[in-house]
């Protein structure tokens, strides 16, 4: 997906940052424009979901007719407003908080991408033998730990993204893309790969691989896609179509595991039997 970013101050804060630089491209036909630094006025909308961003900003996501709205209100009084017209562009109000702007752009990319089957997946992702392995799971289950262990056990295993890579169809099949959103790990690689497996990580006092039922696969993948978007019926349909397709195309496994090398070898043996 290619988007055009406009706006001087906002561009300096985003496109000028290390996270975005690897993803800059020559001007070409793009899917949408994200206009930063706009004077977007306050507008009423029907709230679909409210949540906190990094304990510092209250976020509200909602819809009014053909427009999605996203508002962030910081505890120190700074705010950000975003509006996306379905099938069209995104406007973002002027905001001096770099982290809020960074998150708002993540929201903008997901809003533009969702109807195109392109969404962020909350995961840590490594590349090994020309394909990717995505580790999913709730916060604190050890997704990043599994990525780190893979690199320790197999030095050729490379981290693609540690928090929010994107999934998108490429030549008829889903692939995973590096992104400017990688959590606390500054790993911003403009690369994409086919996917060996999507692996749900569950902490356990042992290492074991199982193949979940389709219902369990849905329960693993769906909560890893942007939760706010699933509150809208139209977006929810796009997301569920995507989940259906992912389950049809890509092996989904559950890894009950300890944070040790045995977990790496159990998964390695399953994916690459000798």
């Amino acid at each position: 997906m290619t988007v055009r970013l406009t706006g001087e101050e906002g561009l300096e804060q985003t496109a000028g940052s290390g996270a975005f630089k690897p993803f800059l491209t020559e001007p070409r036909r793009c899917d949408a424009t994200i206009s930063l630094d706009t004077e977007l006025p306050m507008a009423p909308f029907h709230t679909l979901h409210e949540f906190d961003f990094q304990t510092s900003a209250r976020c509200s996501f909602g819809r009014d007719g053909n427009s999605f709205h996203f508002v962030m209100q910081n505890s120190d009084g700074r705010s950000l407003r975003l509006r996306h017209t379905i099938g069209g562009d995104v406007e973002v109000s002027r905001c001096t908080d770099r982290q809020m702007l960074h998150f708002a752009l993540w929201m903008a990319f997901n809003l533009i991408g969702c109807p195109r089957g392109c969404l962020s997946i909350h995961s840590s992702c490594i590349v090994y033998r020309d394909g990717a392995i995505l580790f999913l799971g709730e916060s604190g289950t050890g997704k990043s730990t599994q990525s780190r262990l893979w690199h320790e056990c197999h030095p050729e295993a490379m981290l693609l993204n540690d928090d929010g890579p994107f999934l998108a169809p490429c030549n008829g099949r889903y692939e995973v893309y590096g992104s400017p959103w990688s959590g606390k790990t500054p790993c911003y690689r403009n690369l994409h790969y086919p996917i060996h497996a999507i692996v749900r990580v569950v902490q356990a006092p042992f290492n074991r691989i199982t193949v979940p039922s389709n219902l369990q696969k849905i329960g693993a993948i769906l909560p890893s896609l942007p939760p706010a978007l699933s509150r809208d019926h139209g977006m929810q349909s796009h997301m569920l179509s995507m989940v259906s397709r992912l389950i049809g195309e890509i092996p989904v496994l559950q890894l009950d595991c300890l944070p040790d090398a045995g977990a790496v070898e159990a998964l390695h043996d399953k994916l690459f039997p000798s």
Binding site: N214, I218, P223, P227, S230, H233, L240, V243, S244, G248
Partner: peptide, 23 residues
Amino acid sequence: SYTLHNVAGEHIVLIQDDKENKM
């Protein structure tokens, strides 16, 4: 406001409120 979806051959309804998401 509830929709029945066919996802990977499973027929599911998503139930979402402020506190939790259920399938």
